[in-house]
Write a protein that binds this DNA or RNA. Sequence first.
DNA 1: CACAAATGGTTGCGCGCGCAACCGTATGGA
DNA 2: TCCATACGGTTGCGCGCGCAACCATTTGTG
Lengths: 153, 153
Amino acid sequence: MTVRPPSEQTLELAAFVPFRLNRLATGVSEHLAVVYQRRFGLDIPQWRVMATVGPQQACTAQSIAASTRMHKTRVSRAIAELETRQLVERASSTEDRREREIRLTKAGRRVYGELVPLALAREAALLECLSPEQLCGFLGALETLERYLHLEN
Amino acid sequence: MTVRPPSEQTLELAAFVPFRLNRLATGVSEHLAVVYQRRFGLDIPQWRVMATVGPQQACTAQSIAASTRMHKTRVSRAIAELETRQLVERASSTEDRREREIRLTKAGRRVYGELVPLALAREAALLECLSPEQLCGFLGALETLERYLHLEN
DNA sequence: CACAAATGGTTGCGCGCGCAACCGTATGGA
DNA sequence: TCCATACGGTTGCGCGCGCAACCATTTGTG
């Protein structure tokens, strides 16, 4: 085995997993965007807030930022916009007056009720095109990599 | 089986594959960023251009945009910056004077030669934490989903 | 040949994001 | 009790991006 200068090693971007992963994630996002964007006029941060708050839980901006891994300013602005559109409401917490409890309004729950089944159907359609072994390996790999990169929850 | 109102269906974001995929792609990107960003001061578009142009090929901004799936303005600006940093050079094509042939400079090839092995090592480290079945299913799923979403090439 | 349409590439503009600074509130230690 | 520090959340600012418009050149059509 001869020693080669490092410049001999090349990289095919189309075969480079980090790039492919980024491209796939973008593609899946766009594939999903038709549901919440074109139909309900929500952008990604808003959709994530809606999905996190959920139909009955009350939660804080902090916890939303943690579970969505979005920057707190992004969360703050998404909530502000959702509030003006009357999809969520904010109430000062009684126990800690810095916090504000966020919950869906009635209109918000209606949107959520329409949105979630569509989103889940999109996800299902995506996963259905995989073979059982692919699906199993894929989900396992997802979990392993999440742990490796400390992304869980 | 009783009919339930749609609002009964809920969505756990942490278990929702499109979200997890986005989160994973971001995590992998950040994990890789230390190589090209902290060490060479390149941002993602610049790194992708470097990787696409490669050590000997000459290519056009157009072809870079196509294979990286970046917007042509993003490519244009990345190339402009790389040119001022003397990592790539542009020459007007003789056969079609609208195009400009882009190639790495000597300094660019040196950076490329350092960068690529590090990037490939990061990718390898990532994939090595997967079991053989996971790796196989994962790569298969990647390919299947790319075809499903028409992301190839 | 002439002219319309298409193509490669760049640039002005507006928007959304992250950073840092900030406000108000809560907490812990002396 | 007082004050430094930490924490939840919001806001001003600068930057990078995509959109649309644009310039220069090429291609297609009559």
